[in-house]
Design a protein around this nucleic acid. Structure first.
Length: 203
DNA sequence: CAAACGATTTTCT
DNA sequence: GAAAATCGTTTGG
């Protein structure tokens, strides 16, 4: 219980496989002195240089995307629409900008903290269903971009939760229609029937 | 230096 | 179902 994922989990080269394996893992944060944790139920892979949907397509290297070029095992947090913080897990070896977007989380611990951060009155799936929503709930902001997943603020644990293969659904990514043919790649994974899976936009 | 846009969510009609 | 909110990053002049 509570086994931190080894660094070698993140430095593997198959980002799609990592995205699939992250389902059922537990994302833990300790931010502003507040603890919260939730099970990952939805992810999307972003395959760097060859993926038009990735910020790092064509090895585009800027101050923002620099974090993705780091060795796997750090967080990449991006601000979208000036409002939402999206949490990604950087994978692969250094200089290969692969990442996995965490899109859905099932609350396990610190639910009161999450609700407080989201100003929610009742616990409902929308608390953590969706990348911007879950980031807000667990206190992740762009200030945490680049921090290690083995550090104090953010960790990902394996608590022995097993996700049966037939409960994993493979699908196309959400909100990346601008990526042309790459928008149809089966890079999205989620746990079948889980209430905390985002609906996405065009489903 | 100025302008356009987005890996989304919420709210209103 | 449609539109607004809102600002850092990127791109062009």
């Amino acid at each position: 219980m509570g086994m931190l994922l080894d660094k070698t989990f993140y430095t593997r080269t198959d980002v799609v496989q990592i995205a699939r394996e992250l389902l059922g893992k537990v994302l833990v944060t300790n931010i502003d002195g507040k603890h919260s944790a939730g099970m990952i139920v939805e992810t999307e892979a972003y395959a760097g240089a060859g993926d038009k949907a990735s910020h790092a397509y064509g090895n585009r290297r800027t101050r923002r995307t620099e974090v993705m070029f780091a060795e796997g095992g750090v967080a990449y947090v991006y601000l979208c629409y000036g409002i939402h913080h999206l949490l990604n897990v950087v994978t692969n070896i250094a200089d290969v900008p692969h990442a996995v977007l965490i899109r859905g989380l099932e609350p396990l611990e610190g639910i009161d903290v999450m609700m407080e951060r989201r100003a929610a009155l009742v616990l409902k799936p929308s608390l953590t269903a969706g990348p911007g929503a879950l980031s807000a709930a667990i206190g992740v902001t762009t200030k945490l971009s680049g921090v290690s997943l083995h550090g104090a603020e953010i960790q990902i644990e394996d608590r022995g939760i097993k996700v049966p293969g037939d409960s994993i659904v493979e699908a196309t990514r959400v909100g990346v229609g601008y990526a042309a043919e790459d928008a149809y790649l089966p890079y999205r994974f989620y746990i079948k029937g889980n209430k905390y899976v985002s609906k996405g936009k065009g489903l």
